[in-house]
Design a protein around this nucleic acid. Structure first.
Length: 271
DNA sequence: AAAACGACCTGGCCGC
DNA sequence: TGCGGCCAGGTCGTTT
């Protein structure tokens, strides 16, 4: 579900709410969701009470709650995860896998498909060390991307989805970025010209910034940390619109499985 | 090393 | 109404 703009929106709301608060109790933590790091659910449950949230960071699609002890709690929402700041009196939804109790509110993670993950990073371990560059950061340059695409025969779509190259893009925003850059998703990575790579980077940044401005895209599951849906679905050019007319040229939008993912593009605008 | 593919899960929707 | 089949915003491990 959530890609960078959705996770960034959640991060923003958590900064307004949970930042500076202290954990009273860990009311629930499902071991099956603890898939990263060496600490078990039991250990995390033991360590958290009394800790204060010092900062909330995002790397790619990962969130990290930094505690006053410099350890981090990693949270990834997978496809169907929701991280909600909610009064403690509110009933738990089904598939609630983590509940951190603060003064009057809970921070709750629910995730029906359980593709999400939780993990513990001891102080000194850099959050998101294995991830690629931030698409909205300075390190995403034409030179960087050209070097990563060099010699790669995989479709550009697969390479943009690879979190070890650029961290944060998923199926929606890759399709939207490729449309805006006017590049077909099935083009081999190495076939992109320097001008196309520059266009690609500009498109990625514009698409993500617009989505953050609209507080993310809600198709079915996504809601922000206060439970509100996003609004960016009204501004999509191709994702979820195959068979409909291209908003730019009027041709019918195509749908094709590329890199194992349903892909949406305009066969007329993109080449 | 890189590419392709199945696995992991549940729920919603569609057609019969 | 019920059931099977198919699809879903992501990642990871295995195979080729």
């Amino acid at each position: 579900m959530p890609e960078l703009p959705e996770v960034e929106t959640i991060r923003f709301y958590l900064t307004e709410t949970v930042l500076g608060q202290r954990v009273n109790t860990v009311k629930h933590l499902d071991q099956r969701m603890v898939k990263t790091g060496s600490a078990s659910a039991e250990e995390i449950t033991r360590r958290l009470p009394g800790r204060m949230v010092k900062s909330i960071k995002r790397r790619g699609k990962f969130l990290f709650l930094e505690w006053d002890t410099q350890d981090h709690l990693l949270v990834h929402l997978g496809m169907s995860g929701r991280l909600i700041w909610i009064p403690e009196s509110a009933p738990w939804v089904t598939h609630t896998h983590m509940v951190l109790g603060f003064r009057d509110f809970d921070l709750r993670l629910s995730d029906p498909r359980r593709f999400g993950r939780i993990g513990w990073l001891p102080a000194g371990e850099e959050p998101g060390a294995q991830l690629g560059v931030e698409p909205l950061g300075r390190r995403l340059t034409r030179q960087f991307l050209a070097q990563k695409l060099k010699g790669r025969s995989a479709p550009i779509k697969a390479l943009l989805l690879d979190q070890r190259i650029i961290a944060g893009l998923g199926n929606i925003y890759v399709d939207e970025s490729l449309f805006q850059a006017r590049i077909r998703p099935d083009r081999p990575g190495s076939s992109l010209t320097p001008a196309e790579i520059t266009r690609m980077i500009r498109a990625i940044r514009a698409v993500l910034k617009q989505a953050i401005m609209h507080r993310g895209t809600t198709f079915s599951d996504y809601v922000d940390a206060l439970g509100h849906p996003g609004e960016n679905q009204a501004y999509l050019w191709v994702y979820g619109r195959s068979g409909q007319e291209c908003r730019r040229c009027g041709h019918l939008l195509a749908q094709q499985v590329i890199a194992g993912r349903t892909s949406h593009f305009c066969g007329h605008c993109q080449s």
